[in-house]
Computed example of a mutant assay.
Amino acid sequence: MSSRKFPRAAGLALAAATLGLTLAACSPQNALNTVTSTRGLNVTQNVRYGPAPRNVMDVYAPQNVQNAPVVLFIHGGSWQGGDKEGHKFVGESLARAGYVTGVMNYRLAPEHRYPDYVQDAASALKVLRDRAQSYGGSPDNLFVMGHSAGGFNAVEMVDNARWLREADVPVSAVRGVIGVAGPYSYDFRQFPSRVAFPEGGNPDDIMPDRHVRPDAPPNLLLVAANDTTVDPYNAVNMEAALKEAGVPVTRTVLPGLNHITVIAAMARPLTFLGDTRQQVIDFIEAHRLK
């Protein structure tokens, strides 16, 4: 626990939020929203990017900005659960840092299997790019970030040559991708999450580390040192594939964090948990258009 001193009310709120982390399945959900205020931000809810009920995103934007970096965030949940409402704290955190941020829902397994949710991510990025200037963002200064299953979606969507091309998003517009505890390189056939992939599917045809385009933008792979949900070898293998393709990559292991707290540390009141938020901001600042 940090040695910083907090007001009693804030301390109680933090304790409640941290307790909520132990009860959450794959995202902090409502516990963190109780300590997240969007006052002073422009928030547009349920921006539609496709015809399905879950083809919506919330956009968090600073006031009075122009040509700000634009970030699309994709939640986790084993491709079977999770939602944008539970990740309000990510949208707020990134908007306070000066970025226009879309927090999206996507179609879920087992009804929707790969590549449906990756195509959803590309469609959401297309709409976010098309409307970027209306929120104060730059359409050519895009970043994509995801946690857990959402990290897979983010890295697969950006690093595979197929998805941006099919969504008509210029590859040059995406300045970087951030994967947080993502399963980029595993044999899903051995796990319950196999229901998120085609029956009879082969990991060699699906995993992001198997088809990296050489012109992919820089990748930041954040690993929770105490992650017992997604094995760290996923990031090791992804890093190796990116390096082999000549793509700039940084793999950072964050001490003291687990699969849940690594994304909870994006919340501004919970940065004492670990360095996730600062790592993300530093990466965006290093690669954004100036």
Rank of each mutant, 00 (worst) to 15 (best):
A122V: 03
R129Y: 01
V70T: 14
R288N: 09
Q279L: 04
A124C: 01
R54G: 03
R131N: 01
R129M: 06
G76Y: 09
L242P: 05
K88C: 11
I206S: 03
F6D: 06
V127G: 05
V230K: 01
A124G: 00
V35N: 07
N202M: 05
I74Y: 00
T38K: 12
G40A: 12
Q279I: 01
S193R: 08
S2H: 12
V247M: 06
T36E: 12
P115Y: 09
A245V: 07
D205H: 13
I281S: 05
E244W: 07
V253K: 05
Q278S: 14
N30M: 13
S123C: 04
L21W: 04
A25N: 12
A122H: 01
T44N: 03
R4K: 06
T36A: 10
A216M: 09
V158F: 02
D215S: 09
L21A: 07
A121W: 02
T229D: 06
T252S: 10
S93P: 14
L32T: 11
G82D: 05
D231H: 13
A161W: 07
M207A: 11
A9L: 14
Y106F: 11
G136M: 11
A121V: 07
A122N: 04
A52K: 05
E199S: 09
D187A: 08
P269H: 04
P217S: 13
N46E: 15
A173S: 15
V262W: 01
S37I: 07
G50D: 00
D140V: 04
S134M: 03
C26K: 07
N33H: 03
V169E: 08
S138C: 01
V212G: 14
G176W: 05
V65C: 08
V171L: 06
V43P: 09
H87N: 15
R113I: 09
A121D: 05
G86V: 07
R194E: 08
H87Q: 14
V280D: 02
N153I: 15
D205N: 15
L21M: 10
D215I: 08
K126T: 06
N219C: 02
L164E: 10
P269M: 11
A13Y: 10
L221D: 00
A31F: 11
D209G: 00
A154K: 02
Q29D: 15
T18K: 09
Y49E: 03
R213E: 08
V71D: 01
G146F: 00
P53H: 03
V171A: 07
S172P: 02
N105H: 06
G179T: 01
N226A: 15
N55H: 14
N105I: 06
P208I: 05
A225Y: 02
V247I: 08
V169M: 08
E239A: 00
